[in-house]
Amino acid sequence: MAVKKELLTGNDVVLKAALLAGAEYFAGYPITPSTEIMNGWAKEAADNPKLLFLQTEDETSAGMAVIGGLLAGKKTWTVTSGVGHILIQDPLVLAETLSLPFVMYVGQRGGPSTGTVIYSQQELNLARYGGNSEGLRVVYAPSNIQELFEITQKAFNTAWRYRLPTIILGDGYLTKTLSPVDTSRVIPAEKAEAIFLNKDVKNLRNCFSREDELAEHLNILFAKYAAASRQIVESESYKTNDAKIVIFAWGTVGFAAKVAVANLRKQNKRVGLFRPITMRPFDDRGAIKAVQKADKILIAESSGGQFGRIVRETLTQATDAEYVRLYKPAEGITSEEIEAKIKEIY
């Protein structure tokens, strides 16, 4: 299909992609910076009787309503941020134990607590392992608005194909930014199917009487997750083959780092980037491969080290490279800053 560029905000993009992926039902609660997506859905649903909308009393209820919609076989989803993201982990872990295709966009904002309202990368731990979770979920991290368009569609497909809760982990800068997007990149949508009132009777439980019963249930889920992970896991290694310094960055900072690497390469600096696209599952092999020639690793993130801890744990046995940290909790990191940091340590 021919390229079809449109000038859109990230909010428009998430909404458009969700509709293309077959989303039919949205339940949510307002919180900045994700509210505009909810507003957009409400507007669509007001004109289209096939689209369902529910504004609940809080995020736990929103998540439970999403689960209700999924049981009925509707592609149901929600969006949230910050403290709302904390609350929604409660229904999300229910979806995790019941293997339900719960789709959620999270626009990260600053923390702890109410923090700030637009931007941060501090909800990574929460997205990956929030609640009393075993991490049986997929977390995608789009790095720019084009990726946001494709990943939002993909998230619905991953959720329904593998029956895993799936999070698109963005931030308010990503969704408030107006930028050109090629909207011709449409991915064929997976089919949805009703779980309740469909064929045989189902009794779904989340509470087990005995430890060994739960262990057996979990072992099945772990095995399924491991098999699905091999299909789902994604990362980008950019100019890492000969890189002396490899930058580890994700999300919007990941794209800033990519632009920095492109500029530094023009100045003959042997710099590369490893950028996870799925934050969970995490591409351990890709990360290890990316640092083979590296004697320094620069970790850049808008948090106090949530991503850095994953990187260091992953690379423990793989490298003796020195770690340099560019941690800016709650603040953005520009290409220029990354470039300057590399020049300082090169």
């Binding site: 369902l52 529910l54 009393e57 049981l71 009777v201 189902k202 009794n203 509470c207």
Partner: peptide, 23 residues
């Protein structure tokens, strides 16, 4: 012998509300 879901922690009402709206 009915489709049944076990929820938690006072969340049964929003689950029912969410389901009913879709069916």
């Amino acid at each position: 012998k009915l489709d049944t879901i076990q929820t938690h922690h006072g969340r049964v009402t929003p689950l029912c509300v969410g389901y009913k709206r879709a069916n």
